[in-house]
Amino acid sequence: MVWNIVIPIITLIVGLVGGFFIGAYYLRKQLEKMQNDPETLQKMAKQMGYNLNGKQMQRAQQMMKNQQFSKNQPGARKNQGRRK
């Protein structure tokens, strides 16, 4: 009788945690793919309503290469505070 309540709650928690990690993994892979493929980056920018020229595209790619998406790369993002 108690198991009819406990099992669904445990299943829900396990599903949410698993879904979070699968989603984070998928997002990381998409960002890594995007930094290597300028066409994908241009497509994402157009979906967001931006048209990037060549110089802006190079800057966007450079910014993405400077950020670290994979766990294997040491260090974290620097200068996370606001710029003045």
Rank of each mutant, 00 (worst) to 15 (best):
M48L: 14
N53G: 06
K46Y: 07
N36D: 13
G54A: 15
M48I: 06
Q67E: 14
Y26E: 06
E32M: 15
K65A: 05
K65C: 00
L52Q: 03
Q68S: 15
M64Q: 01
K55V: 07
A60E: 00
Q67A: 15
Q47R: 11
K65H: 15
K43E: 13
M34F: 03
K43R: 14
Q58N: 09
T40H: 08
G49K: 04
A45D: 03
K33H: 10
G49L: 00
K65I: 02
E32S: 11
D37H: 11
N36G: 12
Q47E: 12
Q56T: 01
Q62M: 05
M44E: 09
M64T: 01
K33A: 15
Y25H: 09
K55Y: 05
Q61N: 00
N36E: 15
Q68T: 15
N66T: 03
G54F: 03
Q56I: 03
Q67I: 12
R59W: 02
M64N: 03
L31R: 09
G54E: 15
Q73L: 06
M64G: 02
Q73R: 05
Q73E: 10
A24R: 13
Q35Y: 04
L27N: 10
N53V: 00
K55N: 14
M34Q: 07
A60H: 00
E39D: 15
K33C: 07
G54R: 07
Q61L: 08
N72S: 15
M64C: 00
M34I: 06
L27E: 11
A60P: 03
M63E: 05
N53K: 08
N53A: 03
R28Q: 10
Q35D: 07
M48F: 09
L41M: 13
N66R: 06
M63K: 08
Q68H: 15
M57E: 02
K29C: 10
Q62R: 05
P74C: 01
E39R: 14
L27Q: 14
Q73A: 06
G23V: 00
L52A: 04
R28H: 07
Y25E: 10
D37R: 09
L41C: 11
N51K: 13
Q47C: 07
G54L: 07
L31S: 09
M48C: 08
E39N: 13
Q58A: 04
Y26C: 07
Y26W: 11
E39A: 13
K43Y: 11
Q30Y: 06
